[in-house]
């Protein structure tokens, strides 16, 4: 199998969400002595770009994204040790800490945004639901987050998004992180009112927003 075929297989494994094919293609890449970074950039990431575009156009949905992310992780289990062995580094897009705010137990919107961000190459740390302001900030410090993404589904939990921003200000940490907000009842006006750095109406918009913020960092 030549290099182009292996890279194509890696991309196909991602688009098809096929863990076995991803593992097999990653092994084939190393056997053929491909640069493991090329396997990531020109194979796996290309597949992620394709699935991301299909998601954006409504051709595929969350299940396909999750399966693509799973195949990506499977291939990386083979490629990552070789990348480290060769003392190379995968370009970092940034780290996003994502969670649902205090009092809100709804997770699906957050999960969709987190998955889309992963397909765009961001490191995503998902802290789950019902997180207090201080817990979110401490976790952001621990994982050295670039962006804090706050989700809520209920009108009555929206004020908890504001509380995170106010607590960051009180702790003189506001300029350390970009803070973005989203969720069913959240609007751009609300994001503006509470001093967030942005708002995404959809998962795609949220991912574009994070990219824009990181590009201008």
């Amino acid at each position: 199998m030549n290099k182009e075929q292996i890279l194509e297989n890696l991309a196909t494994a991602i688009v098809d969400g096929d863990d076995d094919m991803a593992l097999e293609s990653a092994r084939a890449a190393l056997d053929a002595q491909l640069d493991p970074l090329d396997a990531v950039d020109q194979g796996l990431s290309k597949g992620m770009d394709i699935i991301g575009e299909q998601f954006q156009s409504g051709e595929v949905f969350l299940p396909e994204l999750l399966m693509a992310a799973s195949a990506f992780k499977a291939a990386m289990e083979i490629l990552k040790p070789e990348i480290e062995l060769q003392k190379k580094e995968i370009a970092k897009q940034g780290t996003v800490l994502i969670g649902t705010v205090k009092g809100d137990l709804h997770s699906i919107g957050k999960n969709i945004v987190g998955t889309v961000l992963e397909t765009k190459g961001f490191d995503v740390v998902d802290i789950g639901i019902d997180n207090g302001a201080l817990d979110i900030i401490q976790e952001a410090k621990k994982v050295q987050a670039d962006v804090i993404a706050l989700s809520c589904l209920m009108t009555t939990t929206m004020p908890a998004q504001k509380e995170v921003i106010e607590t960051l200000e009180e702790m003189n940490l506001r300029d350390k992180y970009f803070v973005i907000v989203g969720g069913g009842p959240v609007t751009p006006e609300w994001a503006n009112e509470i001093g967030a750095d942005g708002y995404g109406e959809s998962a795609i918009q949220a991912a574009e927003l994070v990219k824009e913020l990181m590009d201008n960092k």
Partner: peptide, 21 residues
């Protein structure tokens, strides 16, 4: 309708403000 504030204070889920609201 749902109330988002009570006496001008934002409702905090699970707090006395939620009970009042």
């Amino acid at each position: 309708p749902a109330l988002k504030s009570i006496k001008g204070m934002d409702v905090i889920g699970g707090s006395p403000l939620e009970i009042h609201a």
